[in-house]
Amino acid sequence: MHPALSVILFTTASGAGYGIIFWLGVLGETGAYPPDRTFGLLAFGLGLGGITAGLLASTAHLGHPERAWRAFSQWRTSWLSREGVASLATYVPAGLFGIGWVFLGENREIWGFLGVLAAAASVVTIVCTAYIYRSLKTIQRWCNAWVLPNYLALAAMTGALWLDLAAVLTGEPFTPGAEAALCSIPVAAFLKFGYWRFIDATHSTSTAESATGLGSLGKVRLFEAPHTSDNYLMKEMGFHIARKHATKLRCIAVIAGFVLPCLLTAIALAMPGAIRVIAVLIAAPLATAGVLVERWLFFAEARHTVTLYYGASTA
């Protein structure tokens, strides 16, 4: 599948944003973070800013961005529509929770309840995002049980790292964000390895034989394509550029996304002061870069059944 930059930015930025809101809700309600104003301002700014930037980036993928509002109508059947509705709905509890935290200095009781509601809405939104891909039967590398936990864990991981960065920048001595990151990074890494292991070992039940129905005659191969240059289908669904670099890119994603942020977070927790600040300032952007590479691979390595009509023997 063609890795559209707008969609990669959308899933990565919004994922991290919802991760921040999720942890703010959970860690605020439990009292792990006090309702400090400057910290709240930066953390909610990063969270809601990331979400908004991601959603705006996603409209760049549309042929008619000015009609994007129509996408809120078909939530009965469409995960993309549900994602749109959920993303907008999350602003309400998240915004109120933010007002309570930043302006009223409250993040427990009724305000904490709003935080938990915002956290739940964030989870629902990421579930919808993951299911846009998870629900496509045409792409076996997306339509499997690994996709949803991967999206959730990567959002939680990047969200926790950015939350810790906000804490460090505003002089917050508390470190629940770093602890949350330290817990979620190994989980996310495990799930990503599980996903890669799965897609490397399996492929779609559809073949060139089932796509053409000519299997009874023997092995089916493309003799002549319908057209001489690439069409939309081949550019969008038949994307295979840089697949040969997949192994290297996976290494980059693992080191930048999981290994180094995990080490840096551990260092930050062990050593307060300037070292903590430096480690945290590197960890969050580095992990996000790693997730961007991971998300690029998620698209570039996905194989669509339409390629079976264009010479692929399996999808």
Partner: peptide
Amino acid sequence: CIGCKLCSWACPYG
């Protein structure tokens, strides 16, 4: 149509 292309992703037959 907003041109999100999702329907083309969902069609196995191109």
